[in-house]
Write a protein that binds this DNA or RNA. Structure first.
Length: 415
RNA sequence: GCGAGCAUAGCUCAGUUGGCAGAGCGUCAGAUUGUGGUUCUGAAUGUCACGGGUUCGAGCCCCGUUGUUCGCCCCA
């Protein structure tokens, strides 16, 4: 039986690996410009970190984690909890009252794979820890937007909401559940389940019957106190001043327990059912919950596979421009000895070049040079060895340049 | 965890009422022996996902397994 890759994983073959490198490089550049510094954390963490960080009752923790048999450790299903753990453990708050961090890494969730969803997947994201300034909320969204836009994705829609503090939600839930109790039997099975586990998520329902019931339901926003509302309004104002287009969506709620106040999502029509390209929000209680001092924080995470899917669909991925400079063709074994040394010398001068390793015919080597998009070809035969001259052929138009100094080929190549 | 579809050459896919395993692309070789692309000629490559069953006979029908795709849930 052939050994296959685990379900929901993928091999990144050279072309795809190059596209991903392109994406990661650009992402790093933009994070750097916004003064976010990279952080890397272990691939696995204490299981307890995710239970306390994300919430026991969330889908991720309750059924999607890759936990080792002894239950002590779990492959990370997301990065916010590990970053906060590292922040607390390394006393980063003492170094500077505001830490702006970013990450690019892969993570693991045991879900059924489908379009835009994998069991091992990659995200890049940012966390700004230490500030509750609405300007940092705005910066986070502007940063996310400029990354998305830098890839040429213009039609991604930004949705923003505020879900208030835990205390504000408590009073809302009392009213909300009171209202829904009258319609309990008419709600969809999923929403009936959520009624018990996480009533907030009922707001997210797309079932027609639920939508009708929700139409007259109490609105979370009305239960938020003035400060929360003012704060939210400031964020929206700053975004508007910054020229960011967005939609407020008072039904946008997210699946992690740690979110407070601001939540946002970037969605794209080019994706399938899993249309969220990027998601994030404020989590002012998490640092404290994980044993640190009370510290406000906000972050986002973007799905790299989904981003690449959109870019592929919109043909925004660049072709490789990293071609061979020179292909050295050898006529026979004696010439190959010379070619190999020549290639080695050129490579040490930083010239990307290649020679034949299959003992193939002149024609086959020429074809190989053509296939690999080599800019120049040089044929090394007995005459060249004897005379110390050769023709450099430019493959784009077939013209040949006379070359009579093997020690200075580089000068001919870059003329 | 639940539902539906799919599985044939390296890739994309045909394959009729059950009757010799196919095409295009790619790969390799050649077209008077030191010059690629275009063209032409030829060649190689298959446990028809795996395991059972029905049948004289199964790529095709039935059952199971695995993989995969798309949904649900949830998320990036």
């Amino acid at each position: 039986m052939l050994i296959q890759k685990p379900k929901g994983t993928y091999d990144l073959l050279p072309e795809k690996a190059r596209q991903r490198y392109f994406l990661e490089k650009r992402v790093r550049e933009i994070f750097n410009i916004y003064n976010y510094s990279e952080i890397r954390t272990p691939t696995f963490e204490k299981t307890e970190l995710f239970k306390r960080g994300i919430g026991e009752e969330t889908d991720i923790v309750s059924k999607e984690m890759y936990t080792f048999k002894d239950n002590e450790f779990t492959l990370k299903p997301e990065m916010t909890a590990p970053v906060i753990r590292a922040y607390i453990e390394n006393n980063l708050g003492n170094e500077s009252p505001l830490q702006k961090l970013f990450y690019i890494c892969n993570m693991f969730r045991r879900e059924r794979p489908q379009a835009g969803r994998f069991r091992e997947f990659s995200q890049f994201g940012a966390e700004a820890i230490g500030s509750s300034d609405p300007y940092i909320d705005a910066e986070m969204i502007i940063l996310a937007d400029s990354i998305i836009r830098s890839f040429g994705i213009e039609d991604s829609v930004i949705k923003i909401n505020t879900i208030g503090t835990a205390a504000e939600r408590e009073t809302f839930f009392r009213e909300f559940k009171g209202y829904l109790s009258g319609f309990l039997k008419e709600l969809s099975a999923d929403s009936q389940r959520r009624y018990v586990i996480n009533p907030l998520r009922i707001l997210d329902s797309k079932v027609q019957g639920d939508l009708e019931i929700l139409r007259d339901a109490p609105v979370l926003y009305n239960f938020l106190n003035d400060e929360t509302k003012r704060n939210f309004q400031s964020i929206l104002d700053i975004l508007t001043q910054s020229g960011i287009e967005f939609e407020t969506d008072n039904r946008l709620v997210r699946g992690f327990d740690y979110y407070t106040s601001t939540t946002f999502e970037f969605v794209s029509e080019a994706l399938g059912a899993q249309n969220a390209l990027l998601g994030g929000g404020r989590y002012d209680m998490l640092v404290q919950q994980l044993g640190g001092k009370p510290t406000p924080a906000i972050g986002f995470a973007a799905g790299i596979e989904r981003l690449l899917m959109v870019m592929e669909a919109k043909k925004l991925l660049p072709d490789s421009d990293d071609n061979l400079k020179l292909f050295i063709v050898s006529m026979n074994k004696e010439c190959k000895k010379f070619s190999f040394k020549l290639a080695d010398r050129l490579r040490k001068q930083g010239v990307k070049c290649e020679t034949d390793f299959l003992g193939r015919s002149l024609k086959a080597q020429m074809k190989e040079a053509n296939r690999s998009n080599s800019e120049y070809v040089i044929v090394i035969g007995d005459e060249e060895l004897k005379n110390g001259t050769a023709n450099l052929k430019r493959m784009s138009d077939g013209t040949e340049i006379r070359m009579n100094d093997f020690d200075n080929i580089k000068n001919y190549l870059f003329k």
